Computed example of a mutant assay.
Amino acid sequence: MNNLKKLAALSVVSVVMLSACKPAEKAEPHSAYLFAYFTGNSKADESIHFAVSDDGFNYSALNSNQPVILSEDISRTGGVRDPHILRGHDGKSYYMVVTDMVCHNGWDSNRGMVLLKSDDLVNWKHSAVHFPERYAGQDSLKRVWAPQTIYDPEAGKYLVYFSLKYGDGPDVIHYAYANDDFTDLEGDPKPFFIPKDGKPCIDGDIVEKDGKYYMFYKTEGHGDGIKIAVTESLTSGKWEEQPDYKQQTEDAVEGAGTFKLIGDDRYILMYDVYKAHRYEFAQTTDLENFEPVKENVTMDFRPRHGTVMTITDSELQRLKEKWGNAE
């Protein structure tokens, strides 16, 4: 009997050792790009659209460039703008935030944003955050613009940042942490980044590189271009401002969206040359010095402010099965 017990114990140990030695399942590599954007200033165009690319430069619209999510189903105003899409730090969840706004109601007409979360990039849960109802003391709030999300490892939470304008004051980028299920914001919004000159800034877009956070932002109404501020901690660090503009044009630009190319050391900075009705890409390897991309950039649609996220082939096929190829 003792020998039988020893054999059984050895069998258990062997199974455990084999399990421990089994190689971990490799994550599927990223092989394509998903572009989330809106298309214009009419109410019908203020909606979430998706496009995909194999190389990061040539994009085809999904769903025949029609909305993939109906604005009236998710927003208070009936329109949404400035979609920002993010892969969760677990690699398997996805987050979007959008401005809840119809611009024909006036540039000072919106008071909130919409938070969205998905497990498959196809089905999205949503929650509108209307600041006058969510927070006290919002009588002088004029607008809530261009929210974006980043995971803050120090807090272990998702940080949502956006610009707020109160009364005659400047647009100031604020932040608040999202709750665990990404349906609401926790605590009161706090100032996040204020340029040294104290002038308005909007359209914050943060990229993490080598332990530092690079915030691209638009100098609203004074230069109308894109600058960068850098910090080592999202909420407790000091922002160091780079003095020069990063866009590769003399025309006014907004809506910075930055992403890293797959298998390449280059980062792409894209922006909306909104008065000239075109979209441009610039490139950098150090997030400080920029130049125009050498590749041709093509899109079978005209985007406005949007963002790009890298995706796997499985995710690409899932998106195509739901919304079809542009072809």
Rank of each mutant, 00 (worst) to 15 (best):
H130C: 03
D100W: 03
V129S: 11
N123Y: 00
P83Q: 06
S93K: 13
S127K: 11
M96L: 14
D108R: 11
I85Q: 03
G112R: 06
V97E: 13
S109E: 02
G79V: 04
M101Y: 11
D119Y: 03
K117T: 15
K92T: 14
V114R: 07
V98D: 06
R87N: 02
T99Y: 02
H126R: 01
K125D: 15
L121K: 05
S109T: 01
K92Y: 06
V97H: 03
M101P: 00
M101F: 14
M113I: 08
H84C: 12
R81L: 12
Y94G: 01
D82G: 04
N123L: 00
Y94W: 15
P83T: 05
D108H: 13
K92H: 13
T99E: 15
V97S: 15
Y94P: 01
D100Y: 05
G112L: 07
D82T: 04
M96Y: 02
V102F: 04
C103V: 15
N110H: 08
G79E: 04
S127L: 07
H89T: 14
L116S: 11
K125L: 10
V114N: 11
M113C: 13
V80G: 06
R111C: 08
T99S: 11
W124S: 09
D120H: 02
K92L: 10
G88Y: 05
P83I: 07
P83E: 03
S93V: 04
H104R: 14
V80N: 07
V129K: 10
L115H: 10
S93Q: 12
